[in-house]
Amino acid sequence: MGLDYKWVLWNAHKKTYDRLILLGMVTYLVLFFVLSFLTNPEIIAETVIIRAFGSLAIIMLHIILAIGPLSRLNPRFLPLLYNRRHLGVSMFLAALVHGVFAIIQFHALGNSNPIVSVFTSNMDYGSLVNFPFQVLGFLALLILFTMASTSHDFFLHNLSPKIWKGLHMGVYLAYALVIMHVFLGAFQQDTSFLTVLALFLGLITLVSLHVRAALKEAKIDGFVWAKDTKGWLAVCHPREIAESYAKIFTVDGERVAIFKHEGKLSAIHNVCKHQGGPLGEGKIVDGCVTCPWHGYQYLAHNGQSPPPFTEKVKTYALKIENDMVYINPEAFPEGTAVTPISSGS
């Protein structure tokens, strides 16, 4: 959280992760170059560059897509999730090198515009197997550019979290385009069985990770709470929530965090406005609910970030009857003040 924008919100952890990303990328590229020239001394440098950076970008894309479900299945992966943006931008840069070199090598020397040439050099748009695979790669690169260039918090703030998240869901379209780009390319250029096998294994791994994570989440979300006559849900005993911490409950498909602060209970929407971090897994620091991901803060009683910040989340009404905490599943608008209720402890 800040009152101005910084180049990168670096801290010691992030610097370590960034160094690891760089080290990993350089190691892969060096290995790729050495192995390529050892196995095929006649190969030209441009071809190796295109292949090395292209395959690097695809491996990184798979890692990026696996981080989300992995961190939902096992919290030990969470630190990777906080640093996913830097991995994304690095992946785009690798893909960009691949794209630029491919366009230079295959399309730059003609008398037509190289970009036009990408689209017109193979006009077999009606065929599936001979479909111009370079076009697919070009479109994927465009999507990745849009995502990488808007990964700064400035865009999250200015485009609104909804549009930003929607824009960044484009990664799935990019993934599909990239898979078909490599798949068709593998058949049209050198019929590499290994490449196709690796793609398939990658796809199966990613899909099964996402399905497992989704099933786990569905189990949490599927719990049916007992209701009172007004439709309020009985979620827990007041003493089950520790002072300065929260418990998370799913009401009507949305997750809500019930916090205990100075012995009183307040309920807010569990999703941080910054990057969707789980507020209920954070704690109350200096009187504010503090997101465990990047430290964005909210007041528990009204879901508002303390001035001068402007983030707001939805709030919910609570009551205690017969030693049970009841929550009204109908949320109040974002930032609505609700008087905290005494938990009697």
């Binding site: 009152l3 101005d4 924008y5 910084k6 180049w7 550019f145 849009t146 260039s149 808007t150 990964s151 700064h152 400035f154 865009f155 703030h157 200015n158 485009l159 824009l167």
Partner: peptide
Amino acid sequence: DPLLADSKKGIRVLLFPGVVAT
């Protein structure tokens, strides 16, 4: 974005491609 007024000028170079895209 009023926050940009208080930010370092160099930051705008970083934001430039994203503004082009969106």
